[in-house]
């Protein structure tokens, strides 16, 4: 089975559509969305409705911290993120609010675990940004492969036989074989707001039989999304970072 895994869409319709089109060309059998459907971006309602429709067709969708905040949960956020959430709330339909509010924190499939942030305590929304954080997440679960988002920078971690964590920065379009001998943690890049220096939407595929994980990029018209962010009166930095991928 070929899984298409996307994360951190952040209400960026153009980036989402470019990623979905690319995943369709790759022939994915099932879609997983690792959370943060909304927040930061200019298209919360359209993007939520699109994801809700995909979920209706069998896609797995998880709760992200921005989704949780958009439907009322209190959480610690920086000013920019909080401003975007305040802008987002009134722009969501009741149906969208209900969809987001009903998202699960984790999901499992075969030997895989899907969660938005550090799996050791999903509600705390801790970032898996380094080997130490990866170790904490990996040792808390039994799943062979954990998929997380939240960080917006693609990374692969592996727990070795000697209980050390190896970090690997994946190369686009180069399949990484996830040996069944050890536990793996894959951090997805972001569809809607990449921060690894490349503005193209980032997503992954995972071939479950061959156990091969591949990171992909899809370019899209980020100048237009940036303009829509400015037109909406959202913070300028949110427009800027889309163009720079930072």
């Amino acid at each position: 089975m070929l899984l298409g895994i996307i994360s951190d869409l952040h209400a960026n319709e153009l980036a989402l559509e470019a990623s979905l089109a690319a995943l369709q060309r790759l022939g994915v059998d099932r879609l997983v969305i690792l959370g943060d459907v909304v927040g930061y971006g200019p298209d919360p309602e359209v993007v939520t409705q699109r994801i809700a429709a995909l979920a209706g067709q069998g896609a797995i969708c998880l709760m992200g911290n921005h989704d949780s905040a958009a439907v009322g949960a209190r959480s610690a956020m920086n000013d920019m993120a909080a401003a975007a959430i305040a802008w987002t709330r009134p722009r969501l339909s009741e149906a969208s609010r209900q969809f987001l509010a009903g998202l699960p924190m984790t999901a499992t499939l075969e030997d895989m675990l899907f969660v938005h942030a550090d799996a050791s305590n999903p509600e705390a929304w801790n970032y898996v940004v380094d080997a130490a954080a990866a170790m904490q997440s990996l040792t808390a679960v039994r799943a062979q492969v954990t998929f997380v988002g939240h960080v917006h920078r693609p990374q692969v971690y592996c727990l070795t036989a000697t209980a050390k964590v190896i970090a690997h920065t994946p190369v686009t379009n180069t399949a990484v074989p996830l040996s069944p001998q050890r536990q793996w943690l894959a951090v997805a890049g972001a569809v809607g707001q990449p921060r690894d220096g490349n503005p193209a939407a980032s997503f992954m595929t995972y071939e479950t039989a061959a156990r091969e994980l591949t990171f992909h990029r899809a370019t899209y018209d980020y100048d237009t999304t940036a303009r829509r962010i400015r037109d909406a009166g959202l913070p300028e930095r949110l427009a800027e970072r889309l163009v720079n991928g930072t």
């Binding site: 000697t162 190896i166 190369v171 180069t174």
Partner: peptide, 12 residues
């Protein structure tokens, strides 16, 4: 391999 995780790196 430049593009794959190096399982021997730092392991031993």
């Amino acid at each position: 391999h430049r593009d794959l995780p190096d399982l021997l790196q730092e392991e031993f």
